[in-house]
């Protein structure tokens, strides 16, 4: 019996009464590379945040590696969306990579030789060794993404959640990153990546999750990458669904009728 790496059951999320995700019900098999796609505001970041427990869902549950999040902390890795990072924060590239090794250290342990070596190795893999002492605010977009990929690699997590790691990245870096993600998958890790470019998606990923306020389709690229499904995802015919849902939420919250 193969336990899914990620399983959500009827997951619904809203921000201050404004529903963003409805009944997301997915099972992601372990050792796969999945692209999460959908138009802007489709709730892709929100889904990742709900999985990570950053926001509480209205209903439904999430299981990672067959267990609730609280029991698998440290085994889940994450690469934040570029806009959500404070690039003025005074940390260096190496500091960030080293953060990937904190899971095993507990509260007061200090990163030793082994941890430093792991961080350095991760920086090597992402081609960031020469920039290790730079402040993260002084990097180009591609270098910033590579820094956070390095943190993820240093962590050696079993599941990776990455929010638009290809945003603001040049072509060569994008190829390098997708190569690294493939390697993670080959090591048996599960990788979920929010992605924007429809053209490259079938080349990059083996599975796709198409999202637009709800799951439009989820499966292998062959099953999902069909014109009519893509039309359904990006066609913008779902405004009615969100409109009605918002009115229902307001009504039951005692607000406007």
């Amino acid at each position: 019996m193969n336990v899914p790496a990620l399983e959500t059951h009827e997951l619904s999320v809203s921000y201050r009464g404004k529903p963003v995700l409805h009944g997301v019900d997915i099972e992601v098999p372990p050792g796969t590379l999945t692209g999460i796609m959908g138009p802007n505001g489709a709730g892709k970041s929100t889904l990742l945040k709900a999985v990570m427990g950053v926001i509480q869902p209205d209903s439904g549950w999430v299981k990672l590696l067959g267990k609730p999040l609280g029991e698998v902390l440290g085994r889940i890795g994450y690469v934040p969306q570029r806009e959500s990072v404070d690039w003025d924060f005074p940390v260096t590239v190496f500091d960030v990579a080293l953060m990937g090794t904190y899971a095993g250290l507990g509260w007061f342990g200090r990163p030793g030789k082994a941890e430093r070596a792991r961080a350095m190795e991760a920086l090597e893999q992402t081609g960031m060794v020469d920039l290790a002492t730079r402040k993260i605010g002084e990097l180009s977009g591609g270098q910033q993404q590579r820094t956070f990929i390095a943190r993820a690699l240093a962590q050696k997590a079993e599941i990776y959640l990455m929010d638009e790691p290809f945003a603001g990245v040049d072509a060569a870096t994008e190829r390098a990153i997708i190569g690294l993600l493939g390697k993670l998958r080959d090591e048996g890790r599960t990788v979920l990546v929010v992605h924007h470019d429809l053209q490259s998606a079938p080349r990059y990923f083996e599975r796709l999750l198409l999202l637009n306020l709800r799951v439009v389709a989820h499966g292998t690229v062959e099953e999902v990458f069909q014109p009519e499904i893509l039309e359904k995802t990006y066609g913008g015919k779902l405004t009615l669904l969100s409109d009605v849902a918002r009115r229902v939420a307001r009504g039951s919250g005692g607000g406007l009728p």
């Binding site: 902390l73 994450y78 934040p80 990072v85 404070d86 953060m99 904190y102």
Partner: peptide, 16 residues
């Protein structure tokens, strides 16, 4: 170390 991590990236700190 922990305070810096929590200040810089609370979501990641929680995941760890």
């Amino acid at each position: 170390r922990v305070l810096r991590l929590v200040s810089f990236d609370p979501a990641f700190a929680r995941l760890l």
